[in-house]
């Protein structure tokens, strides 16, 4: 949705991939399934995963977001991963997590 005037980035959520704002580094939940992964339960915490950007409705997880999220590995070599949860998108860079998701996707 377009942001209203007092918000900092009016075009952000119209095309969030183009203009993701920088966020502070913090740990994020990353699913354990593969590549384009749907995780319905038991997400794990990826220690040390860096949040490079986020977009959507607020930075903090919401109680109604449940325990489902989607991880999109954009680039396996760099470890760029988009995590979609609730109404938010968080971009992290973690090659180890990307490699684990790829391994899960290949069944190894």
């Amino acid at each position: 949705m377009p942001q209203h005037k007092q918000r900092p980035n009016p075009s952000q959520s119209v095309s969030p991939g183009d203009a993701l704002p920088t966020a502070s580094r913090r740990q994020v939940l990353v699913g354990t399934a593969a590549g384009l992964a749907v995780v319905a339960a038991a997400p794990v915490i990826a220690q040390g995963a860096g949040v490079v950007a986020s977009a959507g409705a607020g930075d903090q997880p919401r109680p109604d977001e449940g325990d489902q999220l989607v991880a999109h590995v954009r680039d396996l070599r760099s470890g760029d991963i988009d995590v979609f949860v609730g109404e938010r998108q968080v971009r992290i860079r973690d090659r180890a997590v990307a490699a684990r998701l790829a391994a899960a996707g290949s069944g190894t």
């Binding site: 959520s13 095309s15 977009a55 989607v70 979609f84 949860v85 998108q89």
Partner: peptide, 22 residues
């Protein structure tokens, strides 16, 4: 629409997740 759609996720219904995109 929400950026990600998961087809047939809930008893055959789709569910969306992620930020809203035009």
């Amino acid at each position: 629409r929400q950026k990600v759609t998961i087809r047939g996720a809930s008893d055959g219904e789709d569910i969306g997740t992620g930020p809203w995109v035009q």
